[in-house]
Design a protein around this nucleic acid. Sequence first.
DNA 1: CGCCGTTATTTGCATTTGCAATTAATGCAA
DNA 2: TTGCATTAATTGCAAATGCAAATAACGGCG
Lengths: 157, 157
Amino acid sequence: MSDKAGAFDLADYVPYLLNRAGSRIADDFGQVARDEGLSLQMWRVLAVLHHREPRPVGEIAEWATIEVSTLSRILRTMENQRLVHRRRFAGDYRKVLVSRTHEGRAATEKLVPVALAFESLATAGFSAEEVETLKSLLRRLFDNLGDLERMPATRAG
Amino acid sequence: MSDKAGAFDLADYVPYLLNRAGSRIADDFGQVARDEGLSLQMWRVLAVLHHREPRPVGEIAEWATIEVSTLSRILRTMENQRLVHRRRFAGDYRKVLVSRTHEGRAATEKLVPVALAFESLATAGFSAEEVETLKSLLRRLFDNLGDLERMPATRAG
DNA sequence: CGCCGTTATTTGCATTTGCAATTAATGCAA
DNA sequence: TTGCATTAATTGCAAATGCAAATAACGGCG
């Protein structure tokens, strides 16, 4: 060994592997999205809305993993581009419901098959079972970390 | 179903699950790192150097998944904080070799066990085999996407 | 040796981001 | 019903980021 890495091997460290795979998949698909005139974040917003629409800003933020203030600005841009539409929710005027315009839906429909093809590319060589395993492990990992971030370190010691 | 999501289900889409898990693990560990006075990016740089040192900037960028120009600035900050040290490589003066200072090493040593504990937390409830499976699938996914980003769309069709 | 295309890093500049403060609305309690 | 803590979204402002241009050094070729 050139320099003893101790017991810590980056190339075998889950957070590293996860970040690396996540960054690459995001960058690559971001490229694809950009070819359609959308930023990656915009695509994410559209995908979330495709899933359920209309939705309040906070919920989109959570699903798309975009900080609300950042999202708020992205939505303004998207609204200017006529991709989405914002209106206050009649049942609770604090909430702003976002939905796609016709163009927004068209853009989504156009990109969905590309996204699915991209997913296939990313998992090329995986058996159907392996794909399911990956999904399941990622969900479990996500769930494992869910609580500590919500609790603001109520350290009693 | 409230609104037919067509054939595209976000909650079952690999890039989404990957991004979600990756963001959460990064945010959570970022919090931990910050408690030690380091940004997440700084921790990544230190971890890369822990693995092998000294290293040229470009190589650190690749391993840490940080854009080189961004990294260049992070390194300046870290150098000001006496965490790392930069010098030109005698064998090739274009290259800048980065290594940790004593303090940089101390900070790394302090964080490594925390990082490992964090990895355990993230994979809590996983069997040893499942952890290996996850790593392997993430590596394969990463490799699958490796080429298209390097090739600037030399579409012959 | 001197020129030139390539590689490595840094810097300029515009954009994106995140945190904290602000604005606005809700709903519970006195 | 008035007041107040809570929730939702937006905006101010500073910091982080990314791309492209600048700077510097390498390596091969004439």
